[in-house]
């Protein structure tokens, strides 16, 4: 790898870290601004003012904001996300399992949706403006236009209730076999796939169509190559950067945006965990979830940037 590329990648990583720090400030300030009082929430409406004051002091809620921020940030940097106010659990431990569940679901949704989306994009380009192209666009656009809770309930009704192929509630537990686990996540996975497919497919199609205008595509046609070889070998590699960008954006959505889907299918992931604790005004948990989501989002976008840099032959092979 050339020094120019390493420098660009180092720049991206440094920027990512800086961005994450900025996000940590935003999350902290944002949760500070939330209405309500944790002590009140924990002790209920009937608590005496003394009890409230004691609890506040115990939880460190009386320290100035910047002190609490650096305490918190120091913890986050050393892997200690603090303790949940509502039940005194260690957040890192409680979240570990949740996060791995969410990543498991997101990973399978990605493994299914990304290849399908790109393949559909390639096929749509090959039949551009024809019936197949329009059919692909119409179907995927319909699925993206429906809200995910609606798709989720449709799947529950038809596949879980009527056909009874997969369970409607995605219960997972330790020691569960792989096949059972896959069967449990089938419906949320399908819902997520339907939600992200259209965006990636359309972007693949648009990026490749854009490249298809290039003179080197004409060169390939005049070599007598088959249309699919032209698209795959000559157009696709030049469209990687925009495609990877939108793929990563959707992967990030699969991790960060699963809240609704997890709630529908009662899947024990990050989304459920976040929703539970928001309603309890459990600020440390909300902050921790926020940081994890931000880290996932930023790192996936950095990956997209780095792939785009590496895919550029001018950077890989300087003059």
């Amino acid at each position: 790898m050339s020094p120019a590329i390493l420098k660009l990648i180092a720049q991206r990583l440094a920027l990512g870290i800086l961005l994450l720090l900025a996000v940590s400030v935003l999350i902290f300030v944002g949760t500070e601004l939330l209405p309500g009082d944790v002590a009140q929430a924990i002790l209920g409406q009937t608590a005496t003012p003394e009890a409230l004051a004691n609890l506040r002091a115990e939880l460190g809620l009386n320290d100035p904001a910047h002190v609490r921020y650096f305490d918190w940030l120091g913890g986050v940097l050393t892997g200690d996300l603090g303790t949940a106010l509502s039940n005194g659990q260690n957040i890192s431990e409680a979240m570990g399992k949740r996060l791995s569940n969410t990543l498991f679901l997101a990973m399978w949704a990605a493994i299914i949706s990304v290849p399908i989306a790109i393949l559909l994009g390639l096929v749509a380009v090959q039949h551009r403006n024809g019936f197949i192209d329009k059919l692909i666009s119409a179907t995927t656009l319909t699925s993206i236009s429906l809200p995910e809770f609606f798709i989720g309930y449709l799947l529950v009704y038809f596949i879980a209730v009527e056909l009874q192929w997969f369970p409607s509630v995605s219960t997972v537990y330790d020691g569960m076999g792989f096949a059972d686990r896959m069967s449990a996540i089938a419906l949320p996975c399908a819902t997520l796939t339907l939600v992200v497919l259209a965006h990636m497919m359309r972007m693949t199609r648009a990026a490749i169509l854009n490249v298809m205008q290039s003179a080197y595509i004409e060169t390939a046609e005049l070599k007598g190559l088959s249309p699919f070889r032209i698209i795959l070998r000559h157009a696709f590699p030049n469209a990687i950067a925009p495609i990877v960008n939108v793929v990563m954006l959707n992967l990030a959505f699969l991790v960060v945006g699963v809240v609704v889907v997890e709630v529908i299918f009662v899947y024990p992931g990050m989304g459920q965990y976040l929703v539970d604790h928001v309603s309890k005004r459990d600020i440390p948990v909300v902050q921790a979830c926020g940081m994890i989501f931000a880290a996932v989002y930023i790192s996936l976008n950095i990956v997209a940037d780095i792939v785009a840099i590496i895919a550029n032959p001018r950077l890989r092979h300087p003059k």
Binding site: S214, A215, Y216, E218, T219, L222, K223, G224, N238, P313
Partner: peptide, 18 residues
């Protein structure tokens, strides 16, 4: 194409795949 008849374009810089 590419067997009996071949083509040399005006701008080779654009006609080669980068």
């Amino acid at each position: 194409r590419g067997r009996e008849v071949c083509y040399v374009a005006q701008s080779a810089a654009a006609a080669f795949n980068p």
